[in-house]
Simulated assay, not measured.
Amino acid sequence: MMTLKLDRHIAILGGSSGIGLATSRLAAERGARITLGGRDQTRLNAAAAQTGAMAIPVDAQDVSSLAEFFRAAGPIDDLVITLTRRGHRSSRDADHLGLADLAGSFAGKAIATLRAVGESLDALSEDGSITLAGGVTAQAGFAGTAEPAAVNGAVEAAVAPLARELAPRRVNAVSPGVIATEWWDSLGEHRDAALGTFAQRTPLGRNGRPEDVASAILALIDNPFITGVVLPVDGGIRLT
């Protein structure tokens, strides 16, 4: 069983939807105090209302905005970063990479994630934790995913050196597989067919739910003897 204390303060960047929102809900159910950060004030307020969280707007690609977020959040025990570039589908064949917005892909996730880590340290407890979100493409060999694999790989590769440098703070990451969230809405009418194909391919026979990843995130937060770990939460699809 999770043992999150009633006075534990968790800040979640990217907490207005998907995995971040699911993490907020689950953590609140287990007694944690939550501060959510996101760019869309309307979505952020709606998410905060579901869990009684404090909502602070933040642009994670802007260092000054990140610094203000952590000043406003105050002392925190744990930081969860589930940033993604909304509305951007980065998977593509290799011969189209020359036309891809590679800089934007890295800025929206990998760079924003690392900047958030750096700006959080004055607010983060000396025995606190940081949990990042990479992605299964970093650990698999799926054709057409060189771009997200590189971006997620950058996030996941940072875990070990950060864990060593920031100790006794703990640094871990989850590596989600295909999770049925709003991110897939960018596929429009092809969304359900694509998700169906992935579900058939996954050894467990289904796609993930945000709650599956949220549970893994809280397990990493809760265990005081886990650090430097990238935990796959993908139903085994990386094995296919």
Rank of each mutant, 00 (worst) to 15 (best):
A216R: 02
T137W: 03
F225W: 07
I81H: 03
T197F: 07
A199V: 03
D62Q: 13
V229F: 09
D222I: 08
E147F: 11
V155I: 14
Q61H: 09
V136W: 01
S175Q: 07
G20N: 03
S17Q: 15
K109S: 01
Q139T: 12
T131G: 03
V117M: 07
R86K: 12
P168I: 07
G37F: 07
P224N: 10
S175P: 03
R201I: 09
F106K: 02
M54P: 01
E119C: 15
A27V: 04
A103G: 14
I179D: 00
A49D: 12
R33H: 12
A22W: 05
P232F: 10
A110Y: 00
E147S: 03
A219I: 06
E119R: 14
A48R: 00
A73E: 01
G104Y: 08
R209M: 15
Q50W: 00
L231G: 01
L36E: 05
G38F: 03
A158E: 01
G196S: 09
E68Y: 06
P210I: 10
S129F: 04
F69W: 02
R164P: 00
S120L: 04
T42W: 03
G118S: 12
T181W: 02
A138V: 02
A107C: 03
R170A: 10
L99H: 14
T84W: 11
V80Q: 07
G208M: 08
E147V: 11
D7T: 14
A55C: 09
R33M: 14
S16R: 01
A116F: 08
V229A: 12
R85C: 00
T137M: 09
A94M: 06
T84I: 12
G15T: 10
